[in-house]
Design a protein around this nucleic acid. Structure first.
Lengths: 340, 340
DNA sequence: TCACAGGATGTGAATGTTCACAAACGCTAT
DNA sequence: ATAGCGTTTGTGAACATTCACATCCTGTGA
């Protein structure tokens, strides 16, 4: 293997120690804020550190402490608004606590790919993992095996599981969205769901059904999309092509809502006059859609920071209970919904 | 500091060595594919590795090799489509080459924040850095100091600089976009630019001016946005409120174009019948805008993989020339532009 | 038969830090 | 004075690996 050029001689504990005539251990104590060092020596050492521009070597430290101050985040895909939004906030929350973040982005969320991702840095001794696992087929028990004792938190698991995870209550979200349409007097409500491999899509779909049934309304057709605007467009086309009549549409995310509204307009229908549409996520653009979209705001920032907080709990206090922490979305009402 | 629970006894070289009665060095050789080990021994060692589930300790290895196989990416903000898209591709390209990626997301792209980011893991011995530096005020020379000899690549620098960087030629992009409108017969062309702290926004703005002048056309008004849809809306409102007449609009990105189109429609103007609009980026939603947006496609995937490739060149071959590598955007014509 | 080459294997040192323990020091109370 | 205690400082070992070098073996050619 080629030799790297960056073989700069780094300043070590010993250099600092020699510089001010103390032992390396004393310097180490200063660096680690150990109280057993006199005021005077500490002052001298600190000055030497500054003058020599000493920076402790994390690698050597990890070797002996067996801690890396590294958190790995495993996410997947690249286009999804939620995940990428969240990672940014995870990073910020982690760094605030003195942790750096290793990002791994796998193509598909499958056990094999997760295994590969974990193996690719198993030797790095990461202190904890955060995995974005919004799709079915990833079992907690298998992850426990894979992680080999390293504490981890999942983001997005089936609602009600007792695995260490943070989720947004999509069931609740969909209920609010659907109820909102019912309250406006709609009785013919269709749905464009996300891919039904996703926990969130399933939860929203089921809750949509239940909310309608609870109100004594026969559910309209439901079509499945893949979260992209284009799939929303196509799903809406399928709804329009069917004989199904509807005055309102619950859509799995804002992008698909955008596509759906486009299809509706092409079919000569106006939003919200002919069809009311409610989306999910509240992406920044939603307020500028035509018309501005009524949607369920998901707090991805919170999701990110909460998962870091939980992970740190697990890492520092092994007796932290394994539980699902739940966040709630809320309705942002704009102009894509109106009373019948 | 609290003791972490993950103090699992890991299998080491020595364990494997004892297990099959060879020296630890021999095992090391097998792990590192050193040819000086007999077929038979190699076979035995490999089996032992598998049976004991040995995984080499990256940390110990880094300590002696002074290489971490870690690349740091410093990016900023969270909402921007381009950067977050890119990071995903950087990660994938890096992992394919055996590198893991440390992500640091700073709030504002300033020298101080970069310094903090680098210091926060200076002791980690990262092998290389990729910095997303699309705004003015970050000087190459200062970064050289900060990085202390670690090779780095910048993404997005002023066009024509000879710093190690990868950029998209925005000048070219804006020229194509503007010329497209001129070719359609437009003579009153306004602009909504991105924030003029951004290299890309400046380049596009200047090229818009130049292209118009070269065609003997007096430039229309230019308003500045902040990349968000909402700022595009407001910028378009300012254009409409001014006495400026225009039949076409060059907009700095697709989100702002979305906002602008919304403002136009509210003002009773139709796109493209009354005003043609061309955007930048080609975000996945652009094809579903109302109308589908003509825009300049930016190849962020390529940007990511190219920068990794370049960085690896720099890391492995110190004599790699420092240069700017340039990618080109191209026009995706949809229905938001039409001949006068 | 012996010197020698060359591949296979082993040994000692080094990497930069922390941990556990030992030593030195100064201070107070006996 | 001195025992005892607590604070400050120093020493040796350990962490898991690679690197440089030494040794052992086997076969070949003179």
């Amino acid at each position: 293997m080629a030799r790297l050029p960056s073989q700069i001689k780094r300043v070590t504990l010993h250099d600092v120690a020699d510089y001010c005539n103390v032992s390396y251990q004393t310097v180490s104590r200063v660096v680690n804020d150990n109280p057993h060092v006199s005021k005077e020596t500490r002052r001298r050492v600190l000055r030497a550190i500054k003058e020599l521009n000493y920076q402790p070597n994390h690698v050597a430290r990890s070797l002996v402490t067996r801690r890396s101050n590294l958190i790995e985040v495993i996410t997947f895909g690249s286009g999804h608004y939620g995940p990428s939004q969240m990672v940014a906030h995870v990073e910020r929350a982690a760094r605030k606590q003195g942790y750096n973040l290793i990002l791994t982005n796998i193509g598909e969320m499958s056990l094999d790919e997760i295994r590969a991702a974990i193996n690719s840095l198993s030797g790095r001794l990461v202190d904890g993992l955060i995995m974005v696992t919004p799709v079915i087929g990833v079992q907690y028990e298998e992850l426990v095996d894979l992680c080999g004792g390293i504490p981890f938190v999942m983001i997005d698991t089936p609602l009600g599981s007792t695995t260490p995870s943070v989720v947004i209550n999509q069931r609740h979200g969909s209920q609010i969205a659907t109820q909102h349409l019912i309250d406006l007097g709609h009785r013919h409500i269709c749905e464009i769901s996300g891919p039904l491999r996703w926990h969130g899509a399933i939860a929203r779909h089921e809750s949509w059904l239940e909310t309608l049934k609870a109100a004594g309304i026969t559910p309209g057709r439901s079509e499945e999309g893949d979260w992209t605007a284009w799939s929303g467009y196509e799903a809406a086309r399928r709804l329009l092509d069917s004989d199904c009549q509807f005055t309102a549409l619950v859509v799995g995310n804002d992008q698909m809502a955008l596509g759906a509204m486009r299809a509706l307009r092409e079919a000569g229908l106006r939003v919200p006059d002919d069809v009311s549409v409610v989306g999910f996520d509240d992406i920044p653009e939603a307020a500028c859609f035509e018309p501005p979209l009524t949607t369920m705001r998901q707090n991805f920032d919170m999701l990110g920071s909460q998962s870091v907080e939980y992970l740190l709990d697990l890492m520092l206090h092994p007796d932290t209970p394994l539980q699902q922490r739940v966040l709630y979305p809320y309705l942002v009402e704009r102009q894509s919904t109106q009373a019948v």
